[in-house]
């Protein structure tokens, strides 16, 4: 088999994963794109290991380690995503702005999420309760003008 085929497939798969990481907004979908990138790296490792006929099977053994590391990464990543969802009520990565820097170097604005950052988790349902109210508020004048 020509070595170009697996190498080009790995490159294209990696670039698809790169697009997904940059373009996706849901954090779980970002984790899926990271999985695609890791799978592309695994394909490269296996192809080059079969090409060089390594006596120690370095590429394939490292692919095994990479698969196990991907499993650990997805577990930790999903735990963090679930914690963020429980605290903030959203998993959109561009709405999590509590740690962003402003242009003048001042303190960051906390408009990225609900202001109960360091409160107890018993108020975790607050963003869930706020979301229907905020969605219902613009609807109310329209209902008033209808009759």
């Amino acid at each position: 088999m020509h070595l170009v085929y697996p190498a080009v497939l790995a490159v294209l798969l990696f670039c698809v994963g790169l697009y997904g990481v940059l373009a996706r907004r849901n954090a779980v979908l970002m984790l899926m794109s990271v999985e695609l990138m890791l799978a592309a790296v695994s394909l490269n490792l296996v192809a080059f290991d079969v090409w060089t006929r390594d006596a120690l099977h370095s590429g394939q053994v490292f692919t095994l380690f990479l698969i196990a590391l991907a499993a650990a990464e997805i577990g930790i990543g999903l735990a963090i995503v679930l914690l963020v969802y429980r605290r903030r009520g959203t998993v959109a990565v561009d709405r999590l702005r509590a740690l962003r820097e402003t242009a003048d170097g001042g303190p960051p604005h906390l408009d990225g999420g609900p202001p109960h950052l360091d409160s107890d988790p018993s108020s975790a349902e607050v963003p869930d309760g706020q979301a229907p109210d905020g969605a219902a508020a613009p609807v109310a004048p329209g209902q008033e003008t209808t009759p």
């Binding site: 790169l18 940059l22 373009a23 849901n26 979908l29």
Partner: peptide
Amino acid sequence: ADSRNRPVALVVALAA
């Protein structure tokens, strides 16, 4: 599901 920087991501991925 997609953020606003989708064209930038497309350009970066295609260039890479």
